[in-house]
């Protein structure tokens, strides 16, 4: 905004923007549920950042003397079927998931926003074509789409991101489109049209900033879904190829040894559940507070 309005204004805008940021932040703290969610997210983000410091040992090193052992002084959460330290694998698994999930959501938000804005603003044939295509993608059960895509392009970190982006884009495009359809009828858009503004200016300068709020909340929820999906893909054997530490994959492996080492399956489950729940609590709290605020 400041870039468009020239230099004179940036100086006086700065405090208000900071205040707005704090305003948004304090809104979340008003909601107890949202605060709990935020705390869980911050916890996992910190774990991911400081993984090398926190993890007691190398997540890939195997100890053939300790296979499927329970908790001990040496291995706090025990070891898996290859004698790897579960705690360390959990900690490093945070990194995988917290990089891939936001990345894929970012990608689908970008693509989805452009598609949604275009379809919504121009309407007519453009809208019809774009939306029919997206409807076709949305007609797929999500997991099925993952199966097809991963079966086609093979399991890898990049392909998981591609698959999740592909699956997530239509939803975002639809959201942005419906918001755009609403905003398009506002008088300030008409005012811009009567000024003869270029459609790109109207789409990206006049409409996009007003789509921001719902889009952010939706994106947050989608980070939760993405983590959900990465875990599920890992569990189904369609996620990251071994030996990368990956929570879903850890559950799948430990599932085979549930009768000998039952707790091994519990830790990754708790990890992924807490992270997704945290994100959803946060997004929900945010949504509730922003609607109440308005």
């Amino acid at each position: 905004m400041s870039a468009l309005s020239g230099g004179t204004k940036t100086a006086e805008k700065r405090p208000s923007r900071l205040r707005r940021l704090w305003g948004g932040f304090s809104i979340i703290l008003e909601s107890r549920v949202g605060t709990i969610g935020l705390c869980i997210i911050v916890f996992w983000v910190l774990v991911a950042i400081f993984a090398p410091l926190l993890a007691p040992r190398d997540p890939l090193s195997q100890d053939s003397d300790a296979i499927n052992k329970g908790s001990s002084e040496q291995y706090l959460l025990g070891t898996d079927q290859l004698g790897r330290d579960i705690l360390s694998r959990l900690i490093f698994g945070t990194r995988t998931i917290l990089v891939l999930a936001p990345l894929s959501v970012l990608a689908s938000v970008t693509v989805g926003t452009i598609l949604g804005l275009t379809a919504g603003y121009f309407g007519g044939l453009v809208d019809e074509v774009v939306m029919r295509l997206l409807d076709a993608i949305m007609a797929f059960p999500t997991i099925l789409l993952y199966l097809i895509i991963i079966a086609a392009i093979g399991p890898s970190a990049v392909n998981v991101v591609i698959a999740i982006t592909f699956v997530g884009t239509p939803g975002i495009a639809r959201l942005v489109r419906s918001l755009t359809l609403d905003i398009r009828t506002r008088d300030y858009i008409r005012a811009a049209q009567t000024r003869g503004e270029h459609p790109l200016y109207i789409m990206f300068v006049e409409i996009l900033p007003n789509v921001r709020g719902p889009l952010i909340i939706d994106a947050l929820l989608r980070v939760g879904y993405a983590i959900f999906a990465i875990g599920t893909l890992g569990f189904l054997g369609l996620g990251l190829p071994p030996p990368t530490p990956d929570w879903g994959g850890m559950v799948a492996e430990a599932r085979k040894f549930i009768w000998t080492a039952p707790l091994n399956v519990l830790w990754p489950i708790l990890a992924i559940t807490s992270l997704v729940v945290g994100l959803n609590l946060f997004a929900d709290g945010l949504r509730e507070e922003t609607t109440r605020y308005q």
Partner: peptide, 25 residues
């Protein structure tokens, strides 16, 4: 809150968890 939490838990996690509790323990 119950709805929010249960929908957040991936099925593979809750499934394996149920096995752990109901059939193993």
């Amino acid at each position: 809150l119950f709805s929010l939490i249960t929908t957040s838990v991936p099925e593979f996690a809750s499934g394996v968890f149920l096995i752990l509790v109901l059939s193993f323990w």
